[in-house]
């Protein structure tokens, strides 16, 4: 009997390991830029006025014109704005950061793996013709 229960426990743990919840929804634009939003507290995606607006339960937002979208998928790991594909956004590319009132907050040169420091708030990051909205907490 003890052996049966041990097998059941192992099966249950194995099942849980293989069927782990996805942690992110990753969105990819036609330009190849990717952005991931966390799923731990849910995610809502709406399509209105030509815009895809994804709002995660933690308040982070991804917004993009539907016509600029390529695909999206469930993921276990995140991609983010500081991981622009280097063949599209080379190292050193100038990135401008705007507040939601249109005010330029910061310019910096892109370096992969390096996060930019900003006060908490909602910002639009622009690299050439590409842009993405982020919430900094």
């Amino acid at each position: 009997m003890k052996k049966i229960f041990s097998v059941l426990l192992l099966a249950g743990l194995t099942l849980s390991a293989n069927a782990e919840d996805f942690r992110y929804m990753t969105f990819r634009t036609l330009s190849g830029m990717t952005e991931s939003l966390p799923l731990a507290n849910g995610l809502e995606i709406t399509f209105q006025n030509g815009q895809l607006v994804a709002t995660a339960g933690d308040g982070s937002i991804f917004q993009q014109a539907i016509t600029d979208m390529q695909d999206m998928w469930f993921d276990y790991t995140a991609t983010g704005i500081n991981q622009f594909p280097t063949d599209l956004v080379p190292e050193g590319t100038l990135i401008s950061v705007y507040a939601t009132d249109g005010r330029l907050v910061k310019n910096y040169h892109y370096q992969s793996g390096v996060e930019v420091s900003l006060p908490a708030g909602i910002y639009v990051f622009k690299a050439g013709e590409q842009s993405v909205k982020r919430i900094i907490k």
Binding site: F5, S6, L9, A11, G12, D21
Partner: peptide, 20 residues
């Protein structure tokens, strides 16, 4: 108590996973 704990652990691990 050991068997009860095993049953609870198995049930928890199987039913807690549902993402839609």
């Amino acid at each position: 108590r050991f068997y009860t704990l095993l049953i609870v652990l198995v049930a928890t691990s199987v039913t807690a996973l549902a993402q839609t």
